[in-house]
């Protein structure tokens, strides 16, 4: 049997279905006024999911194009940037984190340092004033930073 992405996915989904069904079956329902209760529908869905996945395991589609090594690294880098953005979002505040995120993302999308820096300054400040002044959204100022206000 050829190892196709769809086969791996199908097996993973069967695993997910089994897990979802087990979780639903173990729900503790103290009392219920209706005949169905919270278990039946998720279990029904798990059965349907498992059946469909089984079809896919036996009849996988084309394997598709998967990113090569350099591209995978870049994808991970973009995800990493977004994760760091999230981690520091409230700690360093919107302006600082947005500046570095735009800088990093623009560099990953092959802008020169100059263009990336200009974009970072403009977008960080521009979006901050647009959101806070224009739309009245409150954004984190960053509780790690000294309070200037």
């Amino acid at each position: 049997m050829k190892l196709a992405a769809d086969r791996v996915l199908g097996l993973a989904l069967i695993g997910l279905a089994a897990f979802a069904a087990a979780h639903a079956a173990n729900l503790h329902v103290p009392f219920s006024y209706e005949p169905v209760g919270p278990k039946a529908f998720p279990i029904l869905l798990s059965v349907v999911l498992a059946a469909l996945s089984l079809i896919m395991v036996f009849r996988p589609g084309e394997n598709g194009q998967w990113p090569d090594k350099t591209l995978s690294l870049k994808l991970l880098a973009v995800l990493g940037v977004l994760l760091v953005y999230a981690l520091l979002f409230t700690r360093l505040g919107f302006i600082v984190t947005t500046f570095f995120t735009v800088l990093a993302l623009a560099r990953l999308f092959e802008a020169t340092w100059l263009k990336a820096s200009i974009a970072a300054v403009l977008m960080a400040l521009g979006s901050y004033y647009l959101f806070t002044q224009g739309l009245g959204i409150s954004l984190p100022r960053g509780y790690w930073l000294p309070d200037f206000a």
Partner: peptide, 13 residues
Amino acid sequence: WVLVPGIAILAFT
């Protein structure tokens, strides 16, 4: 390189 950071900012806020 302008579009992607823009989407990211809008998504996060």
